[in-house]
Design a protein around this nucleic acid. Sequence first.
DNA 1: CGTTATTTTGATTTCTTTCAATCGGTGTGG
DNA 2: CCACACCGATTGAAAGAAATCAAAATAACG
Lengths: 249, 249
Amino acid sequence: MTYQANKMIVNCDQCPLRKKSAFLPFKSDEITFMNRFKTGEMMAEPGTQLFMEGAKAAQLYTALSGLGIRYKTLENGRRQVIGFVMPGDFIGLQAGVMGEMRHSVEATTQMQLCVFNRSRLYDLYKNQPERAYALTYLAAVEEHFLGDALATVGQKGALEKIAWSLHRFFIRARAIGLAEGNQCPLPFRQQDLADALGLSLVHTNKTLSKLRDAGLATWADGRLEVLDLEKLGETGLVETSEAEPRPLI
Amino acid sequence: MTYQANKMIVNCDQCPLRKKSAFLPFKSDEITFMNRFKTGEMMAEPGTQLFMEGAKAAQLYTALSGLGIRYKTLENGRRQVIGFVMPGDFIGLQAGVMGEMRHSVEATTQMQLCVFNRSRLYDLYKNQPERAYALTYLAAVEEHFLGDALATVGQKGALEKIAWSLHRFFIRARAIGLAEGNQCPLPFRQQDLADALGLSLVHTNKTLSKLRDAGLATWADGRLEVLDLEKLGETGLVETSEAEPRPLI
DNA sequence: CGTTATTTTGATTTCTTTCAATCGGTGTGG
DNA sequence: CCACACCGATTGAAAGAAATCAAAATAACG
């Protein structure tokens, strides 16, 4: 394996755990370590279960491309969508440190993934403090998103919930270069959004059409078009002061 | 400062970031480092704002004793309680890595806290991988709790929400030795619980009395008494397979 | 003991769900 | 090419859960 190949593995362009500056030299032991930690890359087809709730997992991932969904299934048969997986996200932190995931993760579209050995995660902390810190950053961002989602699901009305979720998704998508103009892909079903917001499918549908009639945003054929971003944010009670944490990518 | 004093600071009994084995020797540079990282300990009186949503923070904490509350205030004036702070919790991860907290933290009772320098957090990653890893573990547990809370707020009915929250609090309290028999302190207002679960105060009150009438649990005078833990869990749709992550304490 | 905060209760209104049914697109097999 | 089944989106009507409004009862406090 050539040095170039090593460098690719250690530092693949879109991995949130990559080395920040592409120009930093790699020490040879660092390359050796990362080659052991990073197993390789893989493609996941739509519908693939990356993690099953409650199951042990030996592999961790970072998403390089494609979209996925995190969710929990309850004993009453209902489903809570915890969030959407986007490029740059780390998947499997819970499995990494707690042994098993407390929610499932599924690929919605085809996804390109970086694969890591769970068993070597602690070694990362011993040998790669910069990457360990980056991982903690991702965890903190995730915590922030979850807090926002909780506040939305708990305290907002249906129209506000929908507006908030579309606004948030668009902002995130744009931040990682997924948007073209005022459009971005949104390859989920209305049922997924309903389950994310604690609304019924029917009410979600009706509320989406209100948003469309109001000229704020339309969502059809897996694409989201934002016609009035500012008003959409207002409707969704998005905190104006909110400095969206920049994705690590 | 004597060696004993140093040892106390590096390894105070209840801090989740303490060294696991009390018998491990400390290297002198480790003591030096921890003395710089850990500023000291402090008492917070009831009502003290430990963190303000959106504000920069120079200090991070671990809770040693007492109870607190995490919450977000929305633009529509409503409040979402994100969770309750219990001994062993780390407070301020977001401030540590993202610069500012996205929710507020307030002491409900008097709280004893370990105080750390935010500016030295990254040094912790470079010099104390064991503690850095412990911190990530705490973050993963927090993420797990938030996911559970989201699923509860999003997908359960009022009775289930209340039962779930009381069950969960009791289990956590018992795990850290806060319970005496089937009782534990619960020094919050009904309004706090309502804001945590996305219910109105009135409805929360009525639902609590249902739970009381059903003989599952009573909550009065700041104390929670669990009369039928198992049935309470069932009512709250608590996942039976759920291996509660052990607190680090 | 008066004042304030919290809990409790009842009546009414609003929002959301559930139920039921239609419509459009997609894929399959005859 | 068409009948058929299937899935997601859409719409209307009825039922239900929880919020809001209003007020009384308790408890906490200086």
